[in-house]
Design a binder for these strands. Structure first.
Lengths: 104, 104
DNA sequence: ATAATATGCAGGTAAATGCCTGCATGTCAA
DNA sequence: TTGACATGCAGGCATTTACCTGCATATTAT
């Protein structure tokens, strides 16, 4: 997993919207995903390219259409490496913080 | 939570390193965190500023030193909003993908 | 075959990012 | 009080990002 690519891909509201839309309906075409996006198709294409580069989305060509599918693997890996670890010590980290903010 | 700020903050290797270091030893000063970072102190300060803006790190001034503490809340919120959702449908999403890659 | 449809590719621009240097301020210790 | 130490602030520069327009290619339907 390339954490840089994954986090960078997630660090844009348009791309998160695209993921949410695919979550609602997996396998949409580029055209479908562009609707109501309020930007040129070419811009959305670039966003989808970044999601693909990060492996968050995989595509399949069907005729003249390009279908987009969520790949849940990188998000799972982010969870394993970056989230679970902090969740595990979450309460003790909160305790550190609270104690210090109260002034020692 | 400002998902944009949180993901952007996480989308840089230096900042992830800083978080890892704080995870190892919470409450370090700016000076301690800069050691072995291979960049000017001012650059590291900017990175820490971004982590603070995203609320991933909180700071307390003690004399001439500035102590840094991990704030686990935003990561927890990212988990709730962006990870758990996809984890929940993880296997069915993987199934969609596999089926399509195999060609229908 | 031809027109309509779906996507790809090339380049251009304004703004954001990540790094730097130089200097200012504030705090502690001798 | 004075020098050393820890951090803050301002500006400059190269690269990346996110958007655009214009044109090219490939597929389907008539």
């Amino acid at each position: 997993m390339d954490a840089d690519k994954v986090f960078k891909a997630l660090a844009d509201p348009t791309r998160r919207t695209l993921l949410d839309r695919l979550y609602e309906k997996n396998g949409q075409t580029l055209g479908q995903l562009c609707e109501d996006l309020d930007m040129a198709r070419q811009s959305a294409t670039q966003h989808l390219g970044i999601l693909e580069e990060a492996n968050l989305v995989s595509t399949v060509r069907r005729g003249r259409e390009k279908l987009h599918f969520i790949n849940p693997v990188p998000i799972h890996e982010v969870y394993e490496r970056w989230v679970r670890k902090f969740e595990h010590r979450r309460l003790s980290l909160l305790h550190d913080l609270k104690k210090e903010l109260e002034g020692e």
